[in-house]
């Protein structure tokens, strides 16, 4: 049984110009101990997807899903009170901005223990022990004395470690990490990712890692889901997606990162030209068509659903590679 199973998740936000469709019918699932990476540029809907899972969308946003199963139970229609009991408990989240995600008015000890005392036990001593244990787990030295410190006394990297510890306080079965390393120094980024992967292994949790950094994905993902303009354009086992990207967008993204051993020194890295389209109003066809080197008139109207291959590797290109090759030959 999957920890999380999502089918046709859609988020709509009414705006002045009409209805914005930032997330459109995406589906995925996460198993115990599995890492799913959701990849895409800013504005592709990946952060809203994570907030939608947590039930943290802005009030105006409308969420719909055919299925939203957590541990096999439907949580899509759960009232806010019950949802709040899951959040921070069985499913928790790590955010992008460690500098601002901790409340400046309270010590980190208070903020760590608070979530434990909410979901597990009111016992203060137990909460304290758990906080110290986890601070050590995330590699913070002299943990006990850190409990009394305020967020502004810690560096960004340390704060993100605290956020990770906070997410782990109640032994969650699923962690959603929304670009947890974007705001950090490059050297710290690697440490934090390493830590996340390690802890996930140790506690056997499901991890959804949201990122725009394909280098990160290559290192820790089991499954990859590539999002573009609110749609999944390609998904599958990490190896398969990296070794033979099918969708022109994924191909473009992969050309942008240097691969040790493959990319020749001095060779120019690629870029995906163009900008993300406006997602307001009725949308049809493949949204990538205005940036796609292989676009054809049919791309404006045809269905852009995923087509799954034999190895679970799926892509949504309307004119997949074999067709293009055939055309070229003809």
């Amino acid at each position: 049984m999957s920890i999380l199973e999502v089918e046709n998740l859609t988020v709509d936000i009414p705006v002045a110009a009409g209805m914005l469709h930032p997330v459109r019918s995406i589906s995925f699932s996460v198993e115990k101990g599995e890492t799913l990476c959701i990849v895409g540029e800013s504005g592709c809907g990946k952060s809203l997807t994570s907030l939608a899972l947590m039930g943290l969308l802005p009030k105006a946003a409308i969420r719909r899903a055919d299925k939203l199963l957590f541990r096999g139970e439907e949580i899509g229609d759960l009232p806010e009170r019950k949802m709040a009991h899951l959040r921070g408990g069985a499913m928790s989240m790590i955010f992008q901005e460690p500098m601002t995600s901790l409340n400046p008015a309270y010590t980190i000890g208070d903020q760590l223990m608070e979530v434990f005392r909410r979901h597990v036990t009111r016992d203060k001593a137990a909460a304290r022990d758990r906080a110290i244990y986890l601070l050590e787990k995330v590699g913070i030295s002299s943990a006990a004395s850190r409990l009394g410190q305020y967020p502004h006394q810690l560096s960004g990297g340390l704060r993100q470690r605290v956020m990770i510890a906070m997410a782990l306080m109640c032994e969650p079965e699923l962690i959603i990490a929304d670009e947890p390393t974007t705001a950090l120094d490059v050297t710290i980024q690697a440490q934090i990712l390493h830590l996340l992967a390690e802890l996930q292994n140790e506690f056997d949790m499901g991890l959804i890692l949201i990122t725009h950094d394909l280098g990160v994905v290559a290192r820790i993902a089991d499954k990859v889901q590539v999002m573009y303009a609110g749609r999944t354009v390609e998904e599958g086992p990490a190896r398969a997606v990296f070794d033979s990207p099918q969708h022109p967008y994924t191909q473009g993204l992969l050309r942008c990162i240097p691969i040790p051993g493959k990319t020749k020194r001095g060779e120019r890295l690629g870029a995906v030209p163009g900008i993300v389209p406006n997602l307001v109003g009725d949308l049809s066809g493949c949204m990538f068509r205005n940036r796609c080197p292989h676009a054809a008139p049919v791309c404006a109207t045809a269905d852009d659903s995923l087509v799954t291959g034999p190895d679970g590797h799926a892509n949504a290109c309307i004119r997949p590679e074999p067709e293009r090759v055939a055309e070229a030959v003809a």
Binding site: L56, T100, L102, N103, E114, V115, R118, M166
Partner: peptide, 21 residues
């Protein structure tokens, strides 16, 4: 602010989010 989002993500009750955080 982000830390209010964090507080909500921790599943704290609306009262605690509002008054404490």
């Amino acid at each position: 602010s982000d830390y209010i989002r964090t507080a909500r993500a921790k599943g704290l009750s609306p009262t605690v989010v509002l008054f404490k955080h």
